[in-house]
């Protein structure tokens, strides 16, 4: 099965208080941040790698971004992608539509049975990109996939609904799936693996090579400014022994009508 996995590079925001908004209020300060593959995309990649390991075929990792973004493609190569392509275009943050246009154009130029995207991104969290790409490609899709089993010419997928209910589909290929976290456990990418992946092909293309013009990529979303959400009320620390604090907490919850 030929697979394309779309990935995005995002800042590692595990320690929230290190995020600072720069004076322009149009971006965060990136100087001291470290970046990584978007969490959901890593699950999508792992899904793709496992599928490839089971069925053979090719796996191409793709992304749209400036040169620094090569590092996430290297990691994808280390995870098991055969090759990687970056479309060299610094997209306006949050403009999923333009990114979808680029990815759709790129995908059309490649062999594929299945396109896998993360269900959403950790930074802007739009959750739309995969679905838009599917529509543009005119292929069926399923979003928030938590289970996947390949069959002849199709895949059986499980989708997560509210309250833990699963929905199962069989989808004809080619198709696009957006992958939910928890579908698998993305493997660890060793530094040795990344070093070895330096030998694999990492191709850079311009939007022009895909027949895309600046007008076609004109942003449809405009970022006005970034700001932190207003702080909530102070948190309350409940002192005492575990028994005492449990009792206190119960009374607070009770008086709030929670139980």
């Amino acid at each position: 099965m030929d697979i394309i996995a779309c990935i995005k590079r995002i800042p590692d925001t595990s320690e929230a208080d290190t995020i600072k908004i720069d004076p322009s209020q149009m971006s965060i300060e990136k100087g001291s941040l470290v970046f990584k593959i978007n969490d959901w995309d890593e699950y999508a990649l792992e899904t793709a790698v496992q599928l490839k390991e089971r069925t053979g075929g090719s796996l191409i990792a793709v992304t749209v971004g400036p040169k620094e973004w090569d590092d996430v493609l290297r990691r994808a190569l280390a995870m098991g992608a055969d090759r990687a392509i970056r479309v060299d275009q610094d997209m306006v943050a949050a403009d999923c539509h333009s990114v979808a246009i680029v990815l759709a154009a790129l995908t059309r130029s490649l062999p594929y049975d299945l396109v896998l995207c993360g269900a959403q991104s950790e930074d802007f969290g739009c959750g739309q990109l995969g679905v838009m790409v599917a529509e543009m490609l005119g292929v069926p899709h399923a979003a928030l996939v938590v289970g996947l089993q390949e069959e002849e010419g199709k895949v059986r997928v499980d989708r997560e609904l509210e309250a833990g209910i699963l929905e199962s589909y069989t989808i004809e290929l080619p198709a696009l799936l957006t992958i939910q976290t928890g579908i698998n456990r993305p493997r660890y990418i060793s530094l040795g693996g990344i070093k070895r992946a330096m030998k694999k092909e990492l191709q850079v293309m311009s939007p022009g090579e895909l027949g895309l013009t600046a007008e076609m990529l004109a942003p449809q979303v405009k970022l006005e400014r970034l700001e932190f959400p207003p702080r909530g009320k102070e948190a309350v620390l409940i002192p005492g022994t575990p028994e005492e604090s449990a009792e206190h907490l119960a009374s607070i919850l009770q008086s709030a009508g929670i139980f």
């Binding site: 990584k36 456990r185 493997r187 660890y188 040795g192 693996g193």
Partner: peptide, 15 residues
């Protein structure tokens, strides 16, 4: 580690 097959906590540690 080379095969990427480490427990989640080890992966987290190393990442």
């Amino acid at each position: 580690v080379e095969r990427g097959l480490v427990p989640a906590a080890v992966k987290e540690f190393l990442e």
